[in-house]
Amino acid sequence: MGINVLFFGSLTDATAVAALNNVAAGDTAALQELLHQQYPALRTAKYFIAVNQQMIRENTTLKTGDVVALMPPFSGG
């Protein structure tokens, strides 16, 4: 078990996948660093982060089973 990561909108152009399972990361900053190494195009992308559907602004501790969503600016309607 680890962290589940979801990618949305334009970010899926950078990752080519919609989700990653069982990612090992202790907090959101470490997770971002890991993802930026794996998908360099994410480095320059603008996105928000939600942990278990709550938007976060600062580095947040993660535990097994958490769902982290990377979301570009919304464009519904």
Binding site: F8, G9, S10, D13, A50, P72, P73, F74, S75, G76
Partner: peptide, 21 residues
């Protein structure tokens, strides 16, 4: 502004743009 929804504007099978509100 607040709902996590994304639109992809389709021009053709080869060409699309991510919508910006």
């Amino acid at each position: 502004q607040e709902l996590p929804i994304w639109g992809k504007e389709i021009v053709s099978e080869q060409l699309s743009y991510w919508k910006e509100n």
